[in-house]
Write a protein that binds this DNA or RNA. Structure first.
Lengths: 342, 342
DNA sequence: TTGTAGGCGTTATCAA
DNA sequence: TTGATAACGCCTACAA
């Protein structure tokens, strides 16, 4: 069933069929009805490739993420896909994993799909060496690249990030003020956002007049057990009275550690985790967590992207130059639950 | 940069360029090198639409899911997308939500993208009234439809499901044998898989000689708090000594209920949840859960699909008729953790 | 309001 | 081993 079949069956030209399916207004009611009836009868669906070929855009956005089974990214994908579809855009997804070569391959693949833009979800696409991100910078010359929770300073690359640093600083200060003088920070990733969080912890400590050398920062693997074990070793070395973790997963690990040690939460030990995902609520006791405003991040990303892709036009039909900031920052919000006293 | 630009720059015809990029063997080494050099220099990526138009397949699978932020579905997407890409297929994702009209719209959209096949992830696509699934049955006339964790009896529709019923039956019996004589079942969805689970609970009860009228089955909303509240009310009415839930989310709700009531787990109350997702481990105490073998479900689905899409050929080049079962069932596995005594 | 014809970037089929 | 050239299905001037 293609446009010729329909036009033949309806006894009109393909141009008329095209007009009908595209909702043009210069079609007689009679023709429209004839065509629509045939389409309904035969169940015709226009071929998107041919359409894309014809007009140079498929209204499709390429979304890359390292791992869609990660709760954070799974949510991001959901928000992005839904929001984009509301705006008439489809999403083609590529879960790249964490290996640079695979990321590059994924990017190529989306390019070959002629996506109108790229959305890179998660901070894992910002490599430590800028040159490793050259493929992104080059790609951006053709189509806009939107970074959700990451920042790369390049032409046509736009970032929306959460103020991770501020969120962490805030959490640290709140813990300190509520009586925890011996705070430990556990993290598991050196990504861009990972670095920002450490900066935040340091800033908090500074604000509380804790010399940086007294600050306890340890790194583990992102698994409940590894984090729990690590904390246990650390506690044996020297006790602490509050834990900040770089993720909810690690927060759960902290809870498991405390339960095993028989420490009362939040009386003897306060815990603040990061991301405020479903995991924070699933934990018992429920975790106080820094909300990184993912939904807002995603919706801002889409909004900016729509502006870029569909520039407004003035009365004379000239497109008005769009003003999309290269960098948008959303403030984090501390969500208080059962693992803190404040 | 299109194939003409490359051919011009390389001083060969577009046919030669096409051969090179498709790895045909009837190209001279000299020509291949010339073309490759130009491609590397200019960074050409073939246009996938035109390709799709030309050969009638884009090597793309349409994946529908109701909600990619659901942990179960997020995992499914990850497994599916990764596995498909390994086989040279890309995925276009459509998160449809739970509304029938949106599901239909999503299906149409994927059709217009000329996907080579559909994968419908999750049991939410099997409607209660068969006629509501007509759009799937019709769609299957054109391209194979693979159901992950759902079953529809129709031509060219293939299902891979977990033996939810058996898993539940097993769980029930294990609880009963370990001393819980008063077991309650909490569920939250009437989907196909939801019904299977109830059947399993009933079968377990029957095996334990519990008359069906004595069986306690209650329905709530899939949220920690609602489930916890519901259980609390039910407990006030008449205590029970074991809970089976239809999901890990509800299992977490059950834990919260027990903690609030001060019931010791597993001494006074045993809990078995369903799905064995990350939530089961995140819970404290960790949930014993029925593993529904999602990864295996997904990998079997992809394997079958690849067989359908790429039928083997015999020595004479005739395609051998493929034998893919319309229905594949994978056995569930009970994973024991801290909320049970057995 | 309608129809004709050229173009979009590939692939594939012939000849050469 | 190469190179023309006709599909592929649609959109969009332009002409009628």
């Amino acid at each position: 069933m293609n446009i010729y079949d329909i036009s033949k069956a309806a006894g009109v030209s393909i141009a008329s069929v095209s007009r009908v399916i595209n909702g043009a207004d210069n079609v007689s009611e009679k023709t429209r009805k004839k065509v629509m009836d045939i389409i309904d009868e035969y169940g015709y669906t226009p071929n998107a490739y041919a359409r894309g070929l014809g007009r140079g855009s498929m209204k499709t956005i390429g979304i890359m993420c390292s791992d869609s089974s990660d709760i954070y990214l799974a949510n991001a994908i959901y928000y992005l896909e839904t929001e984009l579809r509301k705006n008439g855009y489809n999403s083609i997804l590529c879960c790249t994993g964490y290996d640079l070569e695979n990321k590059k391959a994924g990017f190529e693949l989306l390019k070959s799909r002629q996506v109108d833009a790229f959305i890179l979800a998660g901070s894992k696409f910002v490599e430590k060496k800028l040159e490793d991100d050259q493929y992104i910078i080059d790609g951006a010359k053709e189509h806009p690249v939107m970074l959700v929770n990451g920042f790369i300073d390049a032409d046509n690359v736009y970032s929306t990030t959460c103020d991770d640093k501020g969120g962490m600083k805030d959490a640290f200060i709140k813990l300190y003020e509520s009586g925890s003088k011996n705070i430990i920070y556990v993290y598991s990733s050196d990504s861009y956002s990972g670095m920002q969080k450490i900066e935040g912890v340091k800033a908090g400590a500074k604000k509380c007049n804790i010399p940086e050398k007294n600050l306890r920062i340890i790194k583990g693997h992102k698994s409940y057990y590894d984090i729990a074990r690590l904390l246990d070793e650390e506690y044996a070395r020297e006790p602490f009275d509050a834990i900040i973790t770089s993720s909810d997963t690690s927060g759960v690990g902290a809870v498991k550690f405390a339960v095993k040690r028989g420490l009362r939460i939040p009386e003897e030990l306060q815990i603040v985790s990061f991301n405020n995902s479903k995991l924070a609520e699933a934990s018992t006791p429920e975790l106080t967590s820094v909300d990184t405003m993912l939904q807002e991040l995603c919706s801002k990303t889409c909004k900016s992207l729509m502006k870029l892709l569909n520039p407004e036009v003035d009365a004379d039909g000239n497109s008005i130059p769009v003003s999309v900031p290269k960098r948008t920052i959303v403030k984090a919000k501390l969500v208080k639950r059962e693992t803190t006293r404040f």
